[in-house]
């Protein structure tokens, strides 16, 4: 809060213009370019170089979006949970962890949405339906709304510390849902197929294309979270500045003119 407001104390009504530093750095720009290259590779391998599947034909290509986005959503929610633990642990308590948790959850919800939409489209052409209430789909939908709820809880108001504490507790609990979703295909009997990659049922160019997708989506995840948590930091600073301005104005009123 302090240090951000650069106006001198005896002219409290005027506050310096916000620091206009962009949210990008040299590192994030290089990362952004790498992300674009990765997505380019994914397009080339996913749409042109990888072969058709014997049964699914060209429909198999949806997997190169669906599986990486699901894995990255798991990772994102894991990062949210671990950052929240770091916030709750007194020795590492910092709002930076809270903002990282929030940024990662937002990107995770985005990836989970991509997973649900791509899976639904694949389901229509392979299963014959967009949706069915089996164990994998139902737990995934539950995970999705849990994190939408988490994002809503972050916006309920209060101080930054109040927001951080209440959302951190929720995030640590919500993290437990991730293994539930992942192992739903072995714990219950869903329509959704079992684990393909872990069971070694994918090989050659198909496996490589999935790997390209995973790299591209990971780069995209890091780039998005990096920028988003910087934007969240700026938003918090704007909030703090609002308080500074209010105090400054009030102090101004006391000075007879």
């Amino acid at each position: 809060m302090t240090g951000f407001m650069t106006s001198p104390r005896n002219s409290p009504g005027t506050v310096a213009v916000l620091d206009r530093a962009p949210t990008s750095t040299t590192f994030s720009r290089v990362l952004g370019i790498a992300t674009l290259v990765g997505i380019g590779w994914l397009v080339v391998f996913g749409l042109f170089l990888s072969p058709n599947d014997r049964v699914q034909k060209t429909g198999v290509r949806i997997m190169y979006i669906h599986v990486p986005s699901a894995w990255l959503a798991y990772l994102a929610f894991g990062v949210t949970g671990v950052s929240s633990l770091a916030y709750l642990w007194k020795r590492t308590r910092s709002l930076a962890w809270d903002r990282l948790a929030g940024a990662s959850a937002e990107v995770g919800v985005l990836f989970m949405g991509i997973t649900l939409v791509s899976g639904s489209l694949w389901g229509r052409i392979s299963w014959g339906t967009y949706w069915t209430w089996d164990a994998r789909l139902t737990t995934t939908a539950f995970l999705f709304v849990t994190y939408i709820g988490y994002l809503a809880v972050r916006d309920l108001g209060g101080t930054h510390q109040q927001r951080a504490k209440r959302s951190a507790v929720l995030a640590v609990l919500a993290m437990l849902e991730v293994p539930l979703v992942h192992f739903s295909v072995t714990w219950w009997r869903p329509l959704h197929q079992n684990e393909t990659v872990e069971n070694g049922k994918l090989s050659g160019l198909m496996l490589f294309t999935l790997f390209v997708g995973l790299i591209a989506f990971t780069l995209l995840y890091v780039w998005l979270v990096l920028h988003r948590q910087r934007v969240l930091t700026l938003l918090d600073q704007v909030d703090d500045r609002g308080l500074d301005v209010a105090i400054a104005e009030r102090r101004n009123e006391s000075v007879p003119s």
Binding site: Q56, K57, T132, L191, Q193, E195, T196, L202, M206
Partner: peptide, 12 residues
């Protein structure tokens, strides 16, 4: 009827 596609992937 819903098709239960299994975890096998093969090149065409």
């Amino acid at each position: 009827v819903l098709v239960k596609h299994d975890e096998n992937y093969d090149k065409e």
